[in-house]
Design a protein around this nucleic acid. Sequence first.
DNA 1: GTCTATACGAAGATAGAC
DNA 2: GTCTATCTTCGTATAGAC
Lengths: 209, 209
Amino acid sequence: MVRRKSDSRERMVLSAAALLREYGASATSIDRVLAHSGAPRGSVYHHFPGGRAQLIDEAVALAGDFIAGLIETGARADDPVEAVDAFFTLWRGRLVEGDFRTGCPIVAVAVETNDDAPQLARSAAAAFTRWQEALATLFVRHGLPEERGRRLAAFIIAAVEGAVIMCRAERSTAPLEAAAAEIHDLLAHALRTTGSLADPARDRDAPPP
Amino acid sequence: MVRRKSDSRERMVLSAAALLREYGASATSIDRVLAHSGAPRGSVYHHFPGGRAQLIDEAVALAGDFIAGLIETGARADDPVEAVDAFFTLWRGRLVEGDFRTGCPIVAVAVETNDDAPQLARSAAAAFTRWQEALATLFVRHGLPEERGRRLAAFIIAAVEGAVIMCRAERSTAPLEAAAAEIHDLLAHALRTTGSLADPARDRDAPPP
DNA sequence: GTCTATACGAAGATAGAC
DNA sequence: GTCTATCTTCGTATAGAC
């Protein structure tokens, strides 16, 4: 595998996202990103002329895109339950793997209002909005009214993000499981009411992973 | 009104809580607390021998107690809908008053894992647990099975906290209203199923819709 | 792209005077 | 209870060599 240029830049963004998850936005300093990524100190402002704010912003965008991809994969399978499950499964895995020391990097940025970097709040909002629209579109396609679809999508994202925070504090997946169970029932009820889940036209045997 | 001793200490804790809400845990420095509260710099370690960690911890406890009080007031009225509504109303008001720049101080502490102050995570967890138990007890008293009551309580807290974060990012109360609407329906359904809301022993004239 | 050196500010904490 | 240093560490950012 020929590597024509350094991968320091990419590693720094990935490290920044990991540090956001674990320590929050303020604690994600350039020094710590360098230590975590092993990238050389000398090229920080070469790769990120915007400095620390640009680095954090790219980490938020990367994390937002990754999660949006998970949801949109479920959406392509045209399966609301799968899309929502992907969301829960992601966080359940990350909480356990990280020994309940990691959360959502988007949340970390959103809760630390930064007067000198208002762009960060906008990036966080963009991520939430994208997730919400992906879910809402899927719900509407399965028969929910436009407004209810959007409402339910926002609600699910809120419940998951809030549950992840509680799981961290309590060092237990219980709040996430509570949310998963309640959301599962609620979603099943909402979609069954529209008749969507009973649609016999679904001829797929195994949706793509 | 005779003031026999300085109120610097109390003002500092209140200021710390306000700063936690707006800027997060890492950004709530002693300097900023002093500037916000107007307290004298010289007596910081007199009032808080444990330093900054103790100050933050007391702010978390104070905020947690305040919100627990709101929920428990609804609980004393024996009205699940009122208890949950108090929760939503509090956050809606704070978001709007603070121009969407403030959130929950407990969340702020929970998402910034601090290796040197593990006590903070425990204090955050204690607050969440207390809210959850107050709500769960109320739900069980209204006919929900023990496990469902706890599950629903955790779920509601998660949804509210998550919604507050989304409201901040999007600078809109829409996510909170979405959560309020969904929770309202869910709660009404859960309690009606148990027959609690239809209980004729309730001498109130109009049960909430 | 990467290096070292450095300027500059802010943070937590302590010491000792009043 | 409150004051004023002061120490130390850490943070961002820049300059200039290689």
